[in-house]
Amino acid sequence: MRRLLRPLLLVLAMLAGATATAGAQGLVLSLSKPRVTISSSFSGEQIVLFGVIEGGAPNTPFDVVVTVRGPNEGFITWRKQRRLGIWMNVDSRTFVSAPSYLAVLSNRPPSEMADAETLRQEQAGFSNNHLLQRVGTDFADVVADDPFRQAFLRVKQAQGLYFERTSGVEFIAPRVFRATIPIPGTAPVGRYEVVVKTFAGGELVDRSATSLEVAKVDFEQFVATMARDHAWLYGLATALMALGVGFIANIVFRKD
């Protein structure tokens, strides 16, 4: 049985390899750096994504949409209104699960690549990403022109955590593209998923995904871990540090 299985697997593997190269499609991705490390001098970084489109008819023009999503988090969008002369929060929507970081990069505006329905299905394009809201007792995503949804995207962009770059993907050869993923200094730590979708003739052709990790290292990691796992010790150490600094300063500046 064993003797039979091995050649069978080999044939299967060869078949798979053949389809990847000579077959319809293939999409190979590579990041310039799969891990962004945050040390004390970190103030943001640019990660370059390279992609090669394999197979397909020789002269098909391809469109590429790169979507990078940071770890999901819950958010509340508030709307202020003037009441009794004071601007106060009067209305809110809860976004139960939205990416804490979002970058949508493409070689041209996604609206020119395919029809709106396809784009929405594929979550291709800045405003087409699912942003799950709590609606009553239900969870759903609302229409793209919902004011709270638009405000959420606008505020996140202003905070420098959401990016929309419709010329952020650059073809360096007909089948080879490059995209620069901006990781700001305020980027949340965690695993970021990078999803690449290619379109041709208004249809989705292929998709591929990879991921990159943003993590604290060295001293920053040490401090964060201490604060989380040894809260009492961390608090005591911080308090003692404060008293120490106060004492030293008093000695140094003592006049009398």
Binding site: G74, I76, T77, W78, W87, T94, F148
Partner: peptide, 19 residues
Amino acid sequence: DQTSQPADPYAVTIDESAR
């Protein structure tokens, strides 16, 4: 701050209860 019109009437906060 409270009585003048804010630049953007919308604000986003992290949902602490979801953490």
